[in-house]
Design a protein around this nucleic acid. Structure first.
Lengths: 347, 347
DNA sequence: ATTTAGCACTCAGAGATGTAGAGTGCTAAG
DNA sequence: CTTAGCACTCTACATCTCTGAGTGCTAAAT
């Protein structure tokens, strides 16, 4: 029971037909589509074998066949030929990036939105923060008499700010003092090191100012945590509404998408160039009808985030995979360009 | 053909029953629910009149009746008694606000999310920027050798930043120069005044530095525009999935919600305490099956944003209206408290 | 050993038919 | 003005039948 080239071609045809039409594919149709001159009966025999091997499924006795998980898997791993992007497509994508806001988090969001547009899928973009991400700069900015703004710039380009009301009367002097004192202690330090414990050691060193600044240190901790937890964008969710086979689940999917922690925990971690998780391979009810593709981008060679795509199982993998890869590559080069080599300057 | 009190009671009962069950209400059920001792036949006669007056609709001949637009309108304006919040409910809402991030835009988003939770509707929160909103402070912060961050604080508490790559080598001196020069020209100025034209007059005054700083002034303009365009949050969209009568439209609604401009243009501008727009009164396909309620909040008496609610037509108006009103009141008081009286301090 | 034609078989989906139940509208009497 | 009574209408649901698509198997052909 081996897979000769005809059987592979049949499986490929079934996948590609099903991807286009969302309808089970029958032996007669395959016979017409394949150039080989064999009758539908022969195809039926082959299909029966593919079925026995678990590569095909049958919605009901008298229907055509659709690919199973394993069928898609085999198709993706062995059969499909990725269709590389044309130079026009590349140019189009490039120009989408050109008009995006270059802030890293907005860039990420923009990239996700563009990818969603291009693939008619939902897309997801995340950052994760390897050890090496540190604080480039912290600044305390007076807003009014009893309100200050804490601004933190991380070495991966992420910028966060937070408004804090304080009990003392805000002056520029106080802000400058806090800024330079805390900067001195935090600048260049890995985000992972900035624990509540470490901050409390700063608090001790602040001596008489400690009580005054403690709430601010708490906010600093929250900001660091936010950056460390990573950014997270989902775009193009409404694209999923266009797939009738997802109609039952799309509600649950949208609800899932509101739960950042849960969705993050579900993303694949296989660390291939592109991870592909098909249907029930996702260990989650809500995604059992979908495929998830995930690629990584890096800054200066250091992996620092993912961009991915959530769509129906019947996805045009041969076209979508190169697109996703290209997006990851562009993100890498843009971010490396902006935040790659340079170390932050001191004030 | 006048509306005696019995007819009003019947209409009220129909609305309230329909809101609970989503099923047409028949004469027999009404007879049971009303305390008045009249037979279902009498009720039928009254219902026929209400129908003739356009206050009721009939899904099909042998079904009960459901309220029409006009029926809901009359109910809301004349019949319903708002059910005020209990002190426990108020306390619960207060405590939701206590744990929110006090940044005005995050507060807005948090409030919208809490309201969505509480009402099982989608919620919308916007700011709009009256004449009086001005720039409290602008600051240029060096990020690395060729990257700076522009930070703008507006008098309504909104904070925006933008990363800019520049052609010159960034130093603190340059940043301080730009900050103080531009601050001097912009601080306290209404956002509406900050046109491209006005900025170019600053550019002229910058003399030899003009070419260097022009891209930054462009970014300043974009930031002002962003603030002026207002914030915009929609939360709890997935709540709409729980109403079977919206199942057909919820897809289109979700798509609509991604189009900020379009949805903003659809919000009512009647400027009542709370505007209520029912079903087809919305001049939009997508919202023809929904009701939109909108309240305004203010900072120090100056109206500066809206919070609202999008749900099915059969909404428990008597409970929902007071909730929405209460949210608007809390927002007003919190924001006034934080940003109301104080003028921004100079550096 | 592989391929093919032929045919019986299965099943989903669309239509047709029938029934029960809810609710109305009307009429005539109270 | 209210009510009882009754014929009428329409939906929702279940049952049945028919049709077409597509299979699985067998026996013959290559």
């Amino acid at each position: 029971m081996d897979l000769d080239s005809r059987k592979l071609k049949i499986l490929g045809t079934i996948v590609e037909q099903y991807v286009n039409t969302a309808e089970p594919v029958g032996s007669k149709r395959i016979a017409e589509l394949l150039n080989i001159n064999v009758s539908s009966a022969t195809i039926r025999n082959d299909m029966a074998m593919l079925f026995d091997m678990g590569l095909l499924e049958q919605p009901h006795t008298s229907a055509g066949r659709i690919p199973s998980h394993l069928g898609y898997r085999l198709y993706i791993n062995e059969i499909m030929n990725c269709i590389p992007l044309s130079s026009e497509q590349m140019a189009e994508i490039q120009s989408m990036f050109n008009i995006m806001n270059p802030d890293p988090d907005k860039l990420l969001k923009g990239a996700a939105a563009a990818l969603a547009d291009l693939t008619n899928c939902a897309t997801i973009a995340t950052t994760f923060t390897p050890e090496s991400i540190h604080i480039s700069k912290l600044q305390l900015i007076p807003a009014n008499d009893n309100t200050v703004i804490i601004l933190i710039i991380a070495s991966n380009g992420v910028i966060k700010n937070k408004v804090c009301r304080v009990m003392f009367r805000v002056t520029s002097q106080i802000c400058e003092f806090f800024t330079s004192f805390v900067n001195y202690r935090l600048q260049g330090r890995s985000l992972n090191e900035i624990s509540m414990w470490y901050l409390s050691s700063i608090s001790v060193d602040l001596g008489e100012y400690s009580r005054m600044f403690n709430p601010l240190l708490g906010s600093v901790y929250e900001l660091c945590k936010e950056i460390n937890d990573g950014q997270f964008y989902i775009e193009g969710q409404t694209n999923l509404l266009s797939y009738p086979e997802l109609a039952n689940m799309v509600g649950d999917m949208l609800v899932l998408f509101t739960d950042k922690q849960k969705i993050l925990s579900m993303l694949p971690r296989d660390n291939n160039d592109i991870d592909v998780v098909i249907g029930k391979e996702n260990n989650s009810m809500e995604l059992s009808g979908s495929s998830v593709l995930l690629a990584r981008y890096d800054i200066g060679g250091q992996k620092c985030g993912t961009i991915g795509l959530i769509g129906p199982i019947r996805l045009d993998y041969a076209r979508v995979v190169p697109k996703l890869q290209y997006f990851a590559n562009i993100l890498s080069s843009l971010l490396t360009d902006a935040f790659g080599q340079q170390e932050p300057r001191g004030e």
